[in-house]
């Protein structure tokens, strides 16, 4: 199994930095070789100060697995976050960063997946899920899927155009976004936190009976969503979760 191989630290080169929202930047990294991974996996990143002090963090891959050495990570600026603030303030194309991976194997999606799925993302928790949806789209997997995406403000809807385009071009994918704080008057979507009613009506309206669930976001969000999925009758083993941060 490839995930059993050793994972040495390697040096990647930043090739692009893109502002995705007020608090999130997307970084494209070029690996020295071998970009293979499963959608949902993460890489570890290590920064070293001149005095030898090191900090490591894990970041989910947002890009689609494919025939490329390029990977994309989405980094949200965390208050007092030593690694995220360094990336936001100091990292530019051409810079080199130590990385190791890919890591993880439970929260993953493969093209052989034929079950109908519900994806639930909170904020930057969309990162590993956009990887799954990009992969799904690229391989033309059309098992029924619905994405519920909860964000605080309109500015936080990461990958908005891409998600709209994917769902426009793929009848088997439905995307439902909810803005929980400060939606503008023009916003015609949901404006409350995802709850059982919202999930129930999303499933009724899309005709999706989920056989598998992927939930990613902040810890409290994920706990609440996983509980709701148990309430609507999903089995423990059908629910895959990934928690970001405390």
């Amino acid at each position: 199994m490839p995930s059993q191989r050793e994972k040495p630290w390697r040096v990647a080169t930043v090739t692009a930095v893109k502002i995705a929202s007020t608090r999130v930047k997307l970084f494209t990294l070029e690996l020295p070789s071998g970009g293979n991974f499963k959608a949902g996996q993460h890489y570890d990143v290590r920064l070293t100060a001149p005095d030898g002090y090191q900090a490591q963090r894990s970041y989910s891959l947002a890009s689609s697995p494919g025939d490329t050495n390029l990977i994309e990570i989405a980094i949200e600026l965390i208050d007092n976050g030593e690694v995220s603030s360094y990336f936001h303030d100091s990292v530019e194309p051409g810079q080199r960063i130590e990385i190791r991976g890919p890591i993880g194997g439970h929260f993953t999606w493969k093209p052989s997946h034929t079950k109908s799925s519900i994806f639930i993302a909170g904020g930057s928790g969309i990162a590993p899920i956009i990887s799954m949806l990009r992969h799904r789209y690229a391989v033309k997997n059309n098992s029924p899927a619905v994405l519920l995406f909860s964000v605080r403000t309109e500015d936080d809807i990461l990958y908005r155009e891409e998600l709209e385009s994917m769902s426009d071009n793929d009848p088997s994918l439905q995307v439902i976004t909810t803005i929980t704080r400060g939606a503008s008057k023009d916003w015609i979507g949901n404006t409350r936190r995802i709850d059982r009613n919202m999930i129930d009506s999303a499933l009724v309206n899309t005709g999706v009976t989920p056989e598998s669930a992927y939930v990613c976001g902040g810890s409290g969000f994920v706990e609440s969503m996983a509980n709701t999925l148990l309430d609507i009758g999903l089995d423990f083993k059908q629910i895959h979760i990934e928690r970001f941060g405390p």
Binding site: T48, Q54, N80, E82, Y86, E98
Partner: peptide, 22 residues
Amino acid sequence: MINDNFFGRRRSTPTRPVPPGQ
């Protein structure tokens, strides 16, 4: 590999050492 301009925040002063990478 040194990352230029990275100094870290070292938020809390540990009462005793923490394991590497933590």
